[in-house]
Design a protein around this nucleic acid. Structure first.
Lengths: 166, 166
DNA sequence: CCGAAACTGGAGCGCTCGCTCAGGTAGTTT
DNA sequence: AAACTACCTGAGCGAGCGCTCCAGTTTCGG
């Protein structure tokens, strides 16, 4: 029988993770605090440290979840055209949040594995969609992501960049 | 006659800017505070707010200086080969610092101009060194920078990525 | 229906933060 | 040398921080 107590807790826990991601996207990793996340999720501050061992734990858990999501999304793309459309459809604010977390992972040895996971996913995608020029496509994709985070990228331009040999 | 007092002040001001960049590289933008920078530059904390209107002003000034330096460096590269060598020679820690500042600029409207300045410099370089495939080279260069910040990139691999058509 | 377990939330501790300010020090001018 | 002024600084304020603690509430199994 499902325990109603645990179920209720799980809902709050998830709400906190989503609130954290929103705070990161809006104001950056530095703005993530027990009190700001609690306010964003509309729970009392003490709830944050009931569901997570520390504020840092909350942040790291959020990072892993986001990485999971992005990697899964990339793995399902069937073609270079779909990839270009994917890049063009990304929300700049969400990408900025992603880079905030990327930077956090780059700085901390214990999160290095998340970084290599992301790199490996991009490399695998490039090798799958463009085996003869995988290195360039992987680099160009990373470059497109960066550009998409600021000025945005439209699908035609993305496709032009990714189809490097035509 | 030059006022010795003013000259001494200028030296301290510069020391604070360099200390700020070191702190950003080592511990991130979030670690930049009046007290940490003062300790890094070996000046009393109050000196920080004597030379800069606020801690934020110090950070923004540092960002503009770093951007100046990077843009000037790119503008002088004579060939794709030199560009590949340049990327391979970059220090990962310094690149992480650069991305910290990039992210700061991405989030703040008043710093958007620094971002477009960087993008324009990269685009101009790509158009100069590889006119027939500028968009791809610009994206690939940004991708290489990102990779260089974590795992590092060797010169041969960078050249392979940048010479997209061979 | 009752004890246990999961959950809730407010109070508050020790700490660092950005910033202000009154006053001290040292180089310049007369 | 005295007056002036630009430069410099330690002390301290109010605020927000992570985190602990514990008394209260809800929901469960037996």
């Amino acid at each position: 029988m499902p325990d109603g107590r645990r179920a209720k807790g799980a809902v709050r826990r998830r709400a906190l993770l989503e609130a954290t991601l929103r705070v990161v996207g809006r104001d950056g990793v530095a703005a993530v605090s027990q009190r700001t996340v609690a306010a964003e999720a509309d729970v009392p501050p003490s709830a944050v440290l009931y569901y997570f061992a520390s504020v840092d734990d909350l942040l790291v858990t959020t990072l892993r979840e986001v990485n999971d999501r992005y990697c899964a999304e990339l793995a399902e793309l069937p073609s270079v055209e779909a990839l270009a459309a994917h890049v063009a459809a990304l929300d700049p604010a969400a990408l900025v949040a992603e880079y905030e977390l990327w930077l956090l992972a780059a700085r901390r040895p214990d999160l290095r594995s998340e970084l290599t996971r992301w790199d490996a996913t991009v490399d695998a995608l490039a090798a799958r969609l463009a085996p003869d020029r995988a290195e360039t496509v992987a680099a160009a994709l990373n470059g497109l992501y960066l550009r998409a985070a600021t000025t945005g990228v439209d699908a035609e331009a993305a496709l032009r960049v990714l189809r490097t040999q035509d």
